[in-house]
Amino acid sequence: MQTSRARLFKEYKEVQREKVADPDIQLVCDDTNIFKWTALIKGPSETPYEGGVFQLAFAVPEPYPLQPPQVRFLTKIFHPNVHFKTGEICLDILKNAWSPAWTLQSVCRAIIALMAHPEPDSPLNCDSGNLLRSGDVRGFNSMARMYTRLAAMPKKG
């Protein structure tokens, strides 16, 4: 309990210091609970998610950093490894390949990397995975871009 709190506090200070260094990630800690965090990440360029801003919710377990944080997308996203309804993310480092050297910040970076390089062979969103697996990159790109416009971009006008 005490170790996870101390570690999260360290990460909080680190985030404050590095705010300018990484403009793609904005990590914010809940005002009342240090175990709840939200993050805003920018969709990586040259992907259908470019221009979108996606919100992530972090729930940090008490044994952290011995156990990975639970992360899900709050913003709708069309991606083979993200559950379309719940926002659950299928990423090895959040499950069996977790290591205590990861921080919330580096998890965000890993999620951005996952957005740029989807893994259609272990899909949580089958429709999206099937599009990619059948080689319909154009179809996938247009679907993903459409959802990015709908859900992850500020409404115009």
Binding site: Q67, K95, N96, A97, W98, S99, P100, A101
Partner: peptide
């Protein structure tokens, strides 16, 4: 935790 391999994860350098 589920699916974590002792040799490749726990005994490895973080």
């Amino acid at each position: 935790s589920t699916g974590m391999d002792v040799n490749s994860t726990l005994r490895a350098c973080p």
